[in-house]
């Protein structure tokens, strides 16, 4: 098999935060009744994570569940395991009306880390990033300047960002501008 590559092949930038493209991440869009047993079983079975609450993400390493809407989860699994996980999920879903589909390659993922991470995010997304308002495990499906983006905070205070693969270069450059030296706001 040909070697899969991510959109920016791990590009990184150091400014007032560190910005890294994370490489390939397996992602499965799961739509269905989130309260139903088969959907929950498929999601938790694939990831070993609990079902997330509204606007929450339960993620450990490359596996996790992110709340996208009242009838949609983003299921994170290692990229190489997407095929198997999808097959297992489809089996678990059985006849339940649902949709599980591989969207790994439709996306790019970034990590923003460092003391100013909240501020860099707040320059691009219309979200309350203040400590106390946004903490580890909080997840938003929002925008980054002019494109759609989703993000959550990890235990160490860094952010994971997901955007469409076609705009990976735009988002990386956006993050670079927002992280330019001398641009710390000094609020959070």
């Amino acid at each position: 098999m040909s070697k899969p590559v991510s959109a920016l092949m791990g590009a990184a930038y150091d400014g007032i935060v560190r910005v890294e493209e994370c490489g390939l991440q397996g992602m499965i869009t799961l739509r269905g009744d989130l309260a139903s047993k088969p959907v929950a079983a498929a999601a938790t079975g694939a990831t070993g994570q609990d079902m997330p609450g509204q606007r929450r993400a339960n993620v450990a390493g490359q596996s996790g569940l992110c709340w996208m809407s009242p009838d949609e989860l983003l299921v994170l699994v290692p990229h190489a395991e997407v095929g198997d996980k999808l097959a297992a999920m489809t089996k678990a879903l059985g006849n339940a009306h649902s949709l599980a589909v591989d969207v790994s390659d439709a996306r790019a993922m970034f990590r923003v880390s460092g003391a100013n991470a909240r501020e860099v995010m707040a320059k691009l997304a219309p979200v309350d990033f203040a400590p106390g308002a946004f903490g580890p495990g909080d997840f938003r499906r929002s925008r980054l300047a002019q494109v759609a983006g989703a993000f959550w905070m990890e235990e160490d205070g860094s952010f994971r960002i997901i955007c469409f693969r076609s705009v990976a270069d735009y988002v990386f450059k956006l993050l670079k501008v927002a992280a330019q030296p001398g641009s710390a706001v000094g609020v959070f």
Binding site: A7, A145, Q146, S166, V167, D169, Y170, K173, V177
Partner: peptide
Amino acid sequence: GGEARGEVFQPVRKTP
């Protein structure tokens, strides 16, 4: 305009 100038004036979508 904020950050929207130069390279990030507008998003450019790129295929693989």
